[in-house]
Design a protein around this nucleic acid. Structure first.
Lengths: 253, 253
DNA sequence: AAATTTTCAGACCGTTTGGTCTGCTTTAGA
DNA sequence: TCTAAAGCAGACCAAACGGTCTGAAAATTT
């Protein structure tokens, strides 16, 4: 067992270190600080160029990883497959990500915000009907434009999100709690039928997600793709009809 | 490369061969027919005993496989894990199932009917409100009582059902087509709001399935389990409210 | 141009894992 | 009781795979 750890350029890493809380997963980073005397200070320009290149390559790898993981799952996808798809060597991939799990988690993490975004837009001062309409549209767009992301997240959460639990748990919990309060306020104001708010959230979530996760099945049954604007609109309208009329209090009762 | 193939008792297999169309996945079955002269004909009694034992063991293995596959996926689960959980040796497992994929497909196949069952109950002569209520209840019960089955199927279908496509496609297609007709009839009779029937099917499907697939998340958010009868009822009522009132035409319009 | 650091590829390694081979034990028909 | 098949376990194998080591080409600094 050598103490060298990953061989990734230790100095450079200081500069590229992303804003995420921790880059290293279990502290196996090289840690070997460059001796301070006679230090090289790269020019800002070259540094930027490097950083851009590096980031670009990371992005390419992440993209390939997303595609492959979402298709075959964490265990079903092999590093070589991903490297091949990203058009880099396996070694090169390991140069940017210390191990498979880190790569996987990186993909997930890079998606988290995007994934939670639609729900964030709910605010109490909105008209609930409009808010729900917006949510359905945005989420359905997400299902259309990012089915891989949807599926990957779905698979992970289905298994109890073993790898990003710590990072997902808190924000998700807070967000849901917040939105439950918003919905409850709407209900209290008589703007929505009285139901348990989280069931509404689940329903919104589930129905829209369905069109990404079961895309092939939907396409097989309906004979159309979400990419078809007409079908997209039809889907959206249907969901609005089903859900909105359900939670909208009727004038008559 | 030997031509012996799997070593599973060739004669016995003839008797145990299940009613499913094909047992062999890619014709690598031993096929070596026992010579007909001096044939042993086991008594019906002993045969039955054997068959029962055999079936029981198969069932035990299938159950363990279901649990493990649903937790870790096809690739994430190892045969040894499954064997361990079923309390049989790996060799013994391979005695009953020729390979991992066959085991996996067997699990899936044994679930197919159960899985499609709730939707089958839709018939045109029913009252749609009652039919949908029933569906929601039965499917939610399934989510409560068989979350593993739900998840396994979900994962498989999400990936395009690569392994059971041929077996799933046709029955699913027929079933959905049939139910679309039923729903359309209801709509034509003015018993339901006019929507594209398959969107209703998807919504029913998605919302109920959600409580199985995202069980941990649901429990985290709601703080309760479907096993809690109160929560089950609450969930059911909420879904009824959301969906039924959406598809039920209003007296006033 | 020299020196140093970053980037990257090919060969290699240890482990895991699906699957097999050999042969022993049990069951049950004759 | 003898024999043949069914049932089963331990050792074993080959391939796949995650990951490392060596070292060399680019890039950058001095």
């Amino acid at each position: 067992m050598s103490d060298s750890g990953a061989r990734m350029s230790p100095r450079f890493k200081q500069w590229t270190a992303e804003s995420h809380v921790s880059v290293s997963i279990k502290g196996k980073e090289p840690a070997r600080q460059p001796s301070r005397k006679r230090q090289r200070v790269p020019s800002a320009a070259s540094l930027n160029r490097r950083l851009r290149n590096s980031e670009r390559k990371r992005a390419v790898i992440l993209e390939a990883a997303l595609a492959t993981f979402s298709k075959y799952g964490l265990h079903g996808a092999s590093i070589e497959q991903i490297a091949l798809q990203a058009d880099v060597s396996k070694t090169n991939l390991f140069y940017y990500f210390n191990n498979k799990e880190e790569l996987y988690v990186s993909v997930l993490r890079s998606l988290l915000d995007l994934w939670l975004k639609p729900l964030r837009s709910f605010t109490e001062d909105q008209d609930p009907v409009e808010a729900i309409r917006d949510y359905l549209r945005v989420k359905l767009e997400f299902s259309r434009d990012h089915p891989e992301e949807s599926r990957l997240f779905c698979m992970e959460v289905m298994q109890g999100a073993p790898l990003i639990l710590t990072e997902l748990q808190q924000p998700l919990h807070d967000l849901v709690e917040n939105k439950i309060a918003v919905i409850q306020a709407w209900i209290d104001q008589g703007k929505l039928t009285a139901i348990e708010p989280y069931h509404l959230i689940f329903s919104l979530w589930a129905t829209t997600q369905h069109y990404a996760d079961f895309r092939v099945q939907v396409e097989a049954v309906a004979g159309k793709t979400l990419d078809d604007p007409d079908f997209f609109q039809e889907t959206l309208s249907s969901l609005e009809t089903i859900i909105l009329n359900g939670v909208t209090p009727r004038p008559i009762g």
